[in-house]
Design a binder for these strands. Structure first.
Length: 338
DNA sequence: GGCATTTGACCCAC
DNA sequence: GTGGGTCAAATGCC
């Protein structure tokens, strides 16, 4: 096939991918059924494989998780063609797998009053496997991996680094996505019918549309979707800066803070509930950096900026600047949390 | 006993 | 050679 034909084909596939992503975003706001969710996931996966074949020479017989991980550069930069060919060929070795895993970083500030020494648990179970003194860093870096690495072949890891400047701030770097999520007993339990109803009626999307301030947040989201290299093709991801999340394994969006214990509902001003932390911890920073995020079919971090370039492929580097939530933001507006 | 943490050693990329 | 990341044995806790 001529190169220009491949480019056109790639563009078309990219368009389809983008539309699927947009559809996913809309579905996110309407509590899609599991079937709908799966169907959309397959559509996105199909586009991804097609692009992989187109660019990488065709081998797509890889584990789904690895296939998705192939979409992401560990450092967020676009990879060379040679590298990409490898990505579509071989995911057998764990070390290679890890190198290809998506990476993103969150900065969490621990409330001084919660008595915790570090960022609290997220919904996953982690096992610490190492600690290193880092050159130039005052505090050692801790390394965690998913408890279910063995049993469920889950290669998610995270690194926790305490900030030198502010010891109450932890930089948590996540690598890879949880292959164990569908089995994870620690995963969030289904919401109560009441809460589900609330979420359904007050989806993040609707809230963004209806609230000028949130709408502004969305407009501030920047998703670099420039087509620079075809191989970078993560499935649909949207991201809301610290305020909203579409959680994996769930078919709905909700304000991240809504995950927190109900007792916290009265104190929502600039409180930041990290998606990587449990409901027992509130973090008082609005800084939520998402770096080099590539994503995985189930991570469901979505970008809401629909006014991007034509194609979502390319490095798919999510460069979301820190979002500063107005302390006076009316979180108690009708329909926001209640 | 099972699971988590600690920590020195090892591997590998730069 | 150096530093970051991981491994795995030893140890602790429940």
């Amino acid at each position: 096939m001529e190169s220009w034909e491949m480019q056109v084909l790639a563009d078309e596939l990219a368009q389809g991918m983008e539309k699927a992503m947009q559809l996913r975003f809309h579905l996110c706001a309407t509590s899609p059924s599991e079937d709908e969710h799966l169907l959309l996931q397959r559509i996105i996966s199909t586009f991804e494989k097609a692009l992989c074949i187109l660019k990488g020479g065709g081998h797509v017989g890889v584990a789904p998780a690895a296939a998705h991980e192939s979409s992401i550069s560990a450092d967020g930069s676009s990879r060379s063609d040679d590298t990409n060919k490898n990505l579509c060929k071989d995911y057998g070795e764990a070390s290679k797998k890890r190198k290809l895993q998506p990476t993103w970083t969150e900065q969490v500030k621990v409330n001084s009053g919660n008595g915790l020494e570090g960022p609290g648990d997220d919904k996953y179970r982690w096992r610490k496997y190492g600690q290193k003194d880092i050159l130039g860093a005052k505090y050692p870096r801790s390394y965690y991996r998913c408890t279910y690495r063995q049993g469920r072949n889950c290669w998610a890891t995270k690194q926790v680094q305490r900030s030198d400047e502010d010891p109450t701030v932890f930089e948590v770097t996540y690598k890879g996505t949880h292959a164990c999520k569908q089995f994870n007993d620690a995963a969030p339990q289904p919401e109560s019918p009441k809460k589900q109803e609330l979420q359904s009626n007050n989806s993040c999307y609707d809230q963004i549309e209806q609230n000028p301030m949130l709408s502004n947040y969305r407009s501030n989201l920047r998703v670099d979707t420039e087509v620079s290299d075809i191989q970078e093709m993560p499935p649909a991801y949207f991201s809301f800066p610290s305020t909203f999340a579409c959680h994996e394994g769930e078919n709905d969006c909700y304000p991240i803070s809504a995950q927190a214990d109900d007792s916290h509902l009265g104190a929502y001003s600039p409180l930041f509930y990290s998606p990587a932390t449990s409901g027992s911890n509130c973090f008082s920073t609005a800084t939520y950096q998402m770096r080099d995020y590539g994503g995985h079919d189930s991570t469901d971090i979505m970008s809401a900026n629909a006014s991007t370039n034509n194609s979502p492929i390319g490095g798919m580097e999510f460069s979301i600047d820190p979002v500063h939530i107005d302390p006076n933001f009316p979180f108690n507006i009708p329909g926001f949390f209640t």
